[in-house]
């Protein structure tokens, strides 16, 4: 072993160190914990700080996930069927908009959703939905039953994994379909 300080820029091609090529740790014994590693003052507090921070964030996420899991996700027909049990409970209802949305006297948004053969009237008092919201779209409304009407505070437009190009030809195609359905 040499006493010279190690200078990488003019290191010999010959191994300065006894380092195996496969990346294995140096040292004579199979115990991979070199003594000087054990000598080193260990920054234990740093380890705990990192793990602690992650645990906090994980805990937050877990709480969110669990509390939101209690916000049931029901289709219109299920929501209607369970109306009595869902008294006062906030949940999410999924359905397709089947009539033209209109504004009520109190500024709320009124429309009807349907799923599985059942319909429900929605009175939406929350933020305006995204501009994808229109007749024929699937929506997820969060709110609660207020008598026979579903009072919603959030209406999100759910879109499927079907992506359709928007080009001029398509308009004719759709009109044809509509004509066929009507006729």
């Amino acid at each position: 072993m040499t006493d010279r300080p190690i200078d990488p820029s003019n290191a010999d091609p010959v191994d300065e160190f006894d380092l195996p090529d496969d990346g294995a740790w140096p040292g004579p014994s199979l115990d991979l914990t070199p003594a000087e590693y054990l000598d080193r003052p260990r920054r234990r507090w740093r380890n705990w700080a990192i793990m602690g921070a992650l645990a906090l964030v994980a805990g937050f996420v877990l709480v969110q996930a669990l509390t939101n899991a209690r916000v049931f996700f029901l289709n219109v027909d299920e929501a209607v069927a369970q109306r009595a049990e869902l008294e006062g409970e906030t949940f999410r209802m999924q359905g397709t908009v089947v009539d033209e949305p209109r504004t009520g006297a109190d500024g709320s948004l009124l429309f009807t959703v349907a799923f599985g053969g059942e319909e429900a009237q929605i009175r939406h008092i929350g933020d305006e939905p995204s501009n994808l919201f229109e007749l024929g779209e699937a929506v997820v409304a969060e709110g609660r039953w207020d008598g026979e009407v579903f009072l919603s505070t959030q209406v999100l437009v759910k879109h499927s994994e079907e992506y359709v190009e928007d080009n001029p030809d398509r308009v004719d195609y759709e009109l044809e379909d509509t004509a066929e359905d009507a006729g």
């Binding site: 990488p8 091609p13 191994d15 990346g23």
Partner: peptide, 12 residues
């Protein structure tokens, strides 16, 4: 790379 001896910089 500057800190590691030239012949030890790359795996294989």
């Amino acid at each position: 790379s500057e800190q590691v001896p030239e012949n030890k910089r790359r795996y294989l």
